[in-house]
Each structure stands twice: as structure tokens, then as C-alpha cells.
Design a binder for these strands. Sequence first.
DNA 1: GCAGGTCAGTGAACGGTGTTTACGAAGTTG
DNA 2: CAACTTCGTAAACACCGTTCACTGACCTGC
Lengths: 248, 248
Amino acid sequence: MTEATRRERLRAETERDIRRQARALLVEHGRDAVTLRAIARELGITAPALYRYYDSREDLLRKLAEDICTDLAAELNTKLQGIAEDDISAQVFVVCRGFRRWALAHPQEFTLVFASTEDALGRCGPNEDHSQVGDQFGRVFLEVAGRLIVGHPLPDEIGQNVPEGLHADLKAFQRILLATVNARGVEVDEQVLTLGAVYHITQSWVRIYGHVALEVFGRFPFAVTNPEPLFDSMLAEIMGGMGLSQQP
Amino acid sequence: MTEATRRERLRAETERDIRRQARALLVEHGRDAVTLRAIARELGITAPALYRYYDSREDLLRKLAEDICTDLAAELNTKLQGIAEDDISAQVFVVCRGFRRWALAHPQEFTLVFASTEDALGRCGPNEDHSQVGDQFGRVFLEVAGRLIVGHPLPDEIGQNVPEGLHADLKAFQRILLATVNARGVEVDEQVLTLGAVYHITQSWVRIYGHVALEVFGRFPFAVTNPEPLFDSMLAEIMGGMGLSQQP
DNA sequence: GCAGGTCAGTGAACGGTGTTTACGAAGTTG
DNA sequence: CAACTTCGTAAACACCGTTCACTGACCTGC
């Protein structure tokens, strides 16, 4: 039988409805339109009732951002399942292109999760200790990146020039990355996932995020009528820089 | 004498005051705190009076974004004047580092100008025809980038792999860039400022913007305790990729 | 099974917001 | 000085987040 009591079931249901409505408002009319009163109106309840579920509007938005992260991760994981286990290169393409397409299709959600100052929203995910990847999406992204490196160690010349001041941070990140990849059953140590590789992953994220954000915000220095080739060529360049063959 | 009438002088003065107050509210308490009533209160007038100057709150925010762009450009130009005319490499460093420092010092302004969807704000600058650089900051950035290329043509191997689908856009951008650089008295044609060079500038902007935005929004995949070396090493990498010597 | 506690939801209220409207009081111009 | 333009006001409307005292349904232990 359902272990939960009637009240608990109802509560969970309402909570789901609240987030669904909030999500719809965000997607269709932007962050400012995510209003406690609008959500309540749509649900046929009154605004103060929402305070039984969230401490404040800001709290709701924070939870919403976590939901979005989780959903994005799930979407990418689904796409990942259609790819051969050993074709890591294809996996990277799927994740990166999937991220871009999602951001373009849901600019408001992208803005909330990936372009909000920390004090206005806080990070996704509950773990603030930074010993793990902060959010679900980050986990998917880094897992694939890690597997890519593991399956295809970087040429030695890459990453000999990581700046001294970054060694401590990169070493910490290396530990996180090793844990993340190992958690999926792939054995790997710092002989393969070198500091240079970690640095390269960071730089790749900078470029991918940079392109996507620029496209979402229309901040390229010129009018790009068809940005997809630009993204794909950047991706190919990143992969090529790691000594990997690119593919369409 | 002052050509303007008394009324015109007063109007210009209050308009300046309005923007100054709006700016202060934005910087100190974020976009949501830029309230018509708060601005009016601070100025000792009433909120509806602001409608003599702006069509709506959104209109004010748009104008504010233009101001910010212009001020940023002025700030960078001032820093640029302290650099030797022929040391283009140093000019690039000054502009890029200046952009990063400004963004970190004014995250709210950065968010408004560089991380807002177009429909929520529209682009800076009045010219929507895209035959010119959209905003003041873009002009400064591209001027320096253009001068860099002109003073130091790229190795031939760079930019042979610009994707076919981008040729049209890049050619248009090339025209803009040529006009922008030529407007400063430097003669240059498309033999020097090749399509590959234009592509390289675009990619560089992606990386610089990506790093700065990630830092402002705290969205690096790990806790970077000291992001400055990361930025500088990226800058050095970009310059190095163009066959230029880097410098601290 | 029912008394007592828990808890989702309500309605009223407070202070805040953007925006419109009609109106007055200056400045400008013939 | 009269006519006109322009800046600012007060009042009002419809929203907003949030708090508070409250009802009524649910759940639990006796």
C-alpha cells in the first residue's frame, strides 16, 4: 500500500503543481512573471498558502533552479543513452549540442540557472562544501568530459603550461573529477587525468558556456544569422586540440 | 552664452540626476531595486514625474544599459591612453583585464548589460541595422582587436578551417571591423584582416566573455580561489595562438 | 471513536510597486 | 500680457510579497 498518509500525498501533489505552474510562468513570461499570486491564481488557491511550501518567493526560485538543473541533466542523460557506450566523442557532441539547444529553447531558464549572481539565487544543489560537483547538470557534463579524457589521454605537450597559482585549485578539482568518474565504475587515477587535462576541461567549459551565453543574450559582436556552424566549429576545434577526430 | 533655455538646462540636470540615482540603486541593491518610486523618493519628486523623461521603467533600464556601456568604454579608453601607441599587445591586456575587473566590481551592471535576453532589454546603442558595432564597449574592444591583427598579421595556417556556413556572416563582420579600424585612421584591407583573423577575434571574445561571466556568476565547475591566473593564462594562450609574445 | 494536536488553506491587512489621469504652476513664446 | 508648452503633483487602480489570526480537515494516541 501507499506508505504515505493522505495528507502527505496531497501535499506532494500540490508541491508538484506549484513548481509546474512556476516553471510555465518562467518559460512563457520570464522571471519577473513568476509571481506567488499568479501561481496561486492558476492553482485556484490563495497566495499565502504558498508559504506552507516555501519560505519566500526567492526560496521558490532557488528550488526551481534546482529542478531545472535536474531536468536538464535527465534530458541529457536520456540523449546519452542513445549513443554507443564506447563512442565517447559522440557523447561529448551530444551533451554540448544538447546544452546549447536547451539554452536556446529555454532562455529564461538558462538565465535563471546560469546567469544569476550567487547572492541573488545561490548555487544549485544542496552541497556547499565543494567536495562534490555542485549540481546535476555539472555532474553530467563532467562525467562525459572525464570519460573522454580517460578513453583518450591527452598528448603530453598539452597542459605543461598551467599557471603555478592554479595548482592547488586544479588539484582539488582533479579529486572531484576522479571521484565523479570513478563513481560510474570507471577506474582512473591522476596519471591519466592529469592536471593539464583538468585545465583543458575547464577551458573547454569556458568556451562552450561563453558561446551559448553570447548566443542566448545576443551579445556576439556581429549579427550571426546561423550560429550553429560557429558552435560546431568551436566544438571541433576543442576536440581537435585534444587530438581527437571530429565528426558531424 | 548657454544656448539652452532655462527649462532645457533644468531638464538635462534632472535627467542626469535620475540616471545617477538609478545607477546607484542598481549597483548597490540590484536590478529589482531600481524602482521608479525609489528613484523619485531619493530625488525629492514623485514617481509619475519620471514619465516626463522615460516611457516606462523598462525604457529607463534600457537607457541605463546604454550609459553603462558608454562609461565602460570611456573607462577602458582612459586606461588605453596610458599605453604606448605601438604596444598593441599591452593594449589588449589592458582592455581584457579592465573588462574583467569592471565586471567583478560591478556584477549588477554586468548582468544588466551582458546577461539579459534581448526581448527583456534590447541591445545597447541606437543602431539596429548591424552595419556598425552595436555599442560603445564593443567598439573599444574591436578597435583594439583590429589594431592587434593589423600590427601583427596572423600566421597563414590559422583560420583556414573557418566553416563554410559562416563565410557570409564573417564577411559582413569583416566589413564592420574594417570600417571601425579605418575610422581611427589606420589603413587596412581584407588582405591583412582576413576572414580567419575575424574568426579568431570572435573565438577570443567567446573565451574572454565566457570566463568573465562564469566568474561573475560563480559557475565554474569548481571553487576557484584565485581566478586571476586562470584568466591571465587564457589571455596568454589566446595571444600565443596568434603568434604573439605574452607579458605579465 | 473520539479528544487533541497538526497543518493546509483562507481573508484581511500593510506597505510596496508600475502606470494612468486630471490638474496646477511654472517657463517660453508670440 | 495672452497663449502655449512642459514639469510636477495628487489621487486612483491594479498588482505585488508578506504577516497574522483564523477555520476546518486530517492524523494520532488513548
